[in-house]
């Protein structure tokens, strides 16, 4: 029985990746761009969910990892002429490094203290991107379009300005991160993470060091967030300090809560819903962030399990 369930789970996730692969051929160009953006940002939410949904740690500082990925990728392209692959790799590495450093310091704290501390470190990072504006160009940011040599695949030139290239890059990173998160959460490590979330002392007395598992979760979470920031930079060619601001720490929290904390597909769903809603709203009013606030409030008051959490509780018990 457990085995057939495992098959259904993997099949479902592969089907969703295939669906996204197919969608680019049927949706109109506007939605193709939207979907590409959603996939890139869903990666961010997937990373956030690894920490919140499985290890049970709520962070308000993930913008630091997202922006680390962005800046590492953008700055190396801008100043050193890195290619896309190397710049992406560096983006992930940089955020992994940030997550390791932050984890070693902040994981001594738990609960609300952890939340506040991550927020403060992230805020310091944000201020640093402003302070070193000779390098980062601060608020204004910088553009890397035209600096990136195109990719080559099968003898064809793939320019980053081509919407199809953006879409499929996002899809590849998204698929990898989704499968990674699924695999991790279903692995023995994932089981221990849930145990740490549910009852830390018990986990300790079962022979696991909770701190090292939390650190691992934070590093994976931060690296995935960095991958998102990095791929976003490659796709949209812009880096600016607003991506390091508190709002960008709140976004993945919102997407994850909306989609369903601790579900592997929730982050995608939450990101998609919110991105479309905010897109529609920002066409109508400059106060579109009102929706962000209202959604957070409504979710936490009435639907703390989010959409996928609700579906799991009511209909499809085996959803991971």
């Amino acid at each position: 029985m457990r085995r057939t369930r495992a098959r259904a789970v993997w099949a479902l996730h592969l089907a969703i990746i295939l669906l996204l692969l197919g969608l680019q051929f049927v949706v109109p160009p506007f939605h193709q761009v939207m979907l590409a953006r959603i996939m890139a940002l869903a990666v961010y939410a997937i990373g956030y969910n690894v920490l919140l949904g499985y290890a049970g740690l709520m962070s308000l500082g993930h913008a630091m990892f997202f922006a680390s990925g962005m800046y590492a990728t953008g700055l190396t392209i801008l100043y050193f002429g890195f290619g896309a692959g190397a710049a992406f790799g560096l983006g992930v590495l940089a955020s992994a490094g940030m997550a390791t450093a932050l984890g070693l310091v902040t994981l001594r704290a738990s609960g609300v203290s952890f939340l506040i501390v991550t927020m403060m470190f992230s805020q310091a990072f944000y201020l640093a991107t402003l302070y070193f504006n000779e390098i980062t160009m601060g608020d204004q940011g910088f553009i890397i379009s035209g600096l990136l040599p195109p990719l080559w695949a099968g003898g064809r030139e793939l320019a980053f300005s081509d919407p199809a290239v953006k879409y499929n890059l996002a899809l590849v990173v998204f698929a990898l991160c989704l499968l990674l998160s699924l695999w991790l959460t279903r692995s023995p490590i994932g089981r221990v993470l849930v145990a740490v979330r549910e009852n830390e002392e018990r986990t300790r007395l079962l022979g696991y060091n909770p701190l090292s598992y939390k650190l691992l979760a934070l590093i994976v979470s931060g690296s995935i967030a960095g991958a998102s920031g990095s791929i976003y930079t490659l796709m949209f060619s812009y880096v600016g300090s607003s991506f390091a601001s508190i709002l960008y720490s709140i976004y993945p929290l919102l997407w994850t809560l909306l989609g369903g904390t601790g579900t592997t597909l929730g982050p995608l769903l939450g990101t998609a819903l919110m991105t479309y809603v905010v897109d529609i709203a920002s066409g109508l009013t400059s106060s579109y962030l009102l929706l962000v606030g209202a959604t957070l409030l409504i979710l936490i008051m009435w639907f703390p399990a989010g959409v996928m959490g609700g579906i799991r509780a009511r209909w499809v018990r085996w959803l991971p």
Binding site: L115, I250, L290, G293, I300, M301
Partner: peptide, 29 residues
């Protein structure tokens, strides 16, 4: 709001972030 979520520490933070944006954006409007 707060009484409804029983002042749970993390829920309260999320809820007050929600309030933050609601107040801020209403003022903007």
């Amino acid at each position: 709001v707060l009484r409804r979520i029983e002042y749970k520490p993390e829920s309260t933070i999320v809820a007050t972030i929600g309030l933050l944006y609601i107040i801020q954006q209403l003022v903007l409007t």
